[in-house]
Design a protein around this nucleic acid. Structure first.
Lengths: 231, 231
DNA sequence: CGCGGCTTTGATGTTCATCAAGTAAAGTGG
DNA sequence: CCACTTTACTTGATGAACATCAAAGCCGCG
């Protein structure tokens, strides 16, 4: 058995199929030498707004939030995503500092590759370049669409949207533990904390959800979808 | 004098410096054979949501709006931009249909290149690929930032923001003709038409702007900036 | 000159943020 | 492990911000 292959676990990385599909075995071996895995605990900051960018990062396990601080000082959450839906910063070649911060909502594994090496690969390998552009575009597009969707809903519609987002996109389960505080939900959908809580209470009273602290159970998903759509 | 050069005016295209910088003379000559210019009159639709994408487009003169239709049927304007700030759709390699519509707010010139040819170039030429990714990222990033900025302001702040956007980013002049209706401003910043008008009237009464139909003159830009920031 | 669309303004009601006060939960230091 | 502190959550009351409705004015165009 080849020792090198054993050490390099890029071979079974899911991102391989997406962005690195155009790399042959040898190229992946080489990639491994420019790469390291890093673990972030829940709450830890992965990228900090304004910091210099010198590595290409992607999430391979866990959950993160992408956010910025507004001029008035409070936090504005741009998106919350699962692995591979976050691949480094978006403006990887156009900015040299992070525009937004990223932090871990759950313990998260991040793969860190030297940025210069990615650039080199990008220049040399057209397939890799296309895979990367495609991935980044998809992610950007999702963020834009999500932001537009949220903007166009009212309060209850937004809360319904978030609940559906967690249940369908993040956890694939009707029962889940909220990875964020009520305040963070508020920062995400752009409303006050008090009203997020109030709306959750209303949903509970109408038997649409059940709430046990951070644990949420979606009881009537149909009704929730109607509210999200109409909102 | 070289005839070919005379026919192909890509040599004096501003985009050349941004995305096509890595192409040599010969490559640009070839690009020209895959390219045509198209003129759209004010109000005409350039890309239509849902339509198949088979060309790469960029704006080289005029003004356009990028928008979508919400489930409830009304228009949501994503951004309004000048040349080169709009380069085809964002998800050029990840989607095969337009996610959003684009239409001309002023008579506009658009350069249309066969998408397959762009893909080919992208694969072959790393520098070109990097230039393109960089450009697309910058545009995406600007849209995201703008959307977040707007979301976080109140009504008067948003109107002030739009006025400043037109005066600083679009026209570079204190006096300009609004290229959009009051309703379109409302669709852009996400509020009702009546309140956009009301706010404009308030600004007029406070001598911050002067209004003659579609013509706007910014009188007190300092005050407007304060309102936009605080909002 | 009369019709239809865009604009303007006022009146009204809804939606939502803010404030306040209380409760539960989660850290923290002895 | 407990008392203490702090932070998150919850609910009600109030007022501000904003949408909606309605009516009237304006303007271009047939």
């Amino acid at each position: 058995m080849n020792d090198k292959k054993h050490i390099c676990n890029c071979f079974r990385c899911d991102l391989k199929d997406v962005v690195f599909a155009f790399l042959d075995e040898e190229a992946i071996e080489e990639l491994c030498t420019h790469r390291e895995e890093q673990v972030y605990r829940k709450g830890e900051v992965i990228n900090h707004e304004g910091e210099k960018i010198n590595s290409f990062k992607y999430l391979n396990s866990g959950l993160v939030k992408l956010y910025r601080r507004t001029p008035s000082g409070d936090e504005q959450i741009i998106t919350i995503t699962r692995p591979f839906e976050f691949v480094s910063n978006m403006s990887i070649f156009s900015e040299d500092r992070y525009q937004y911060s990223v932090s871990a909502l759950e313990d998260s594994g991040v793969c860190v590759i030297q940025l210069d090496y990615i650039k080199e690969l990008f220049m040399k390998n057209g397939g890799f370049a296309m895979g990367l552009l495609s991935k980044i575009s998809t992610i950007n597009d999702k963020i834009i669409r999500q932001t537009l969707d949220i903007r166009q809903k009212n309060l209850v519609g937004r809360v319904a949207f978030v609940l559906l987002y967690f249940t369908n996109e993040i956890y694939n389960s009707r029962v889940f533990d909220l990875p964020v505080s009520r305040k963070e939900i508020a920062d995400y959908i752009g409303m006050s904390t008090a009203n997020v809580i109030r709306t959750l209470s209303d949903f509970r009273k109408e038997d649409i959800i059940r709430v046990f602290g951070k644990t949420i159970e979606i009881v009537d998903i149909i009704k929730l979808e109607i509210i999200a759509k109409r909102g």
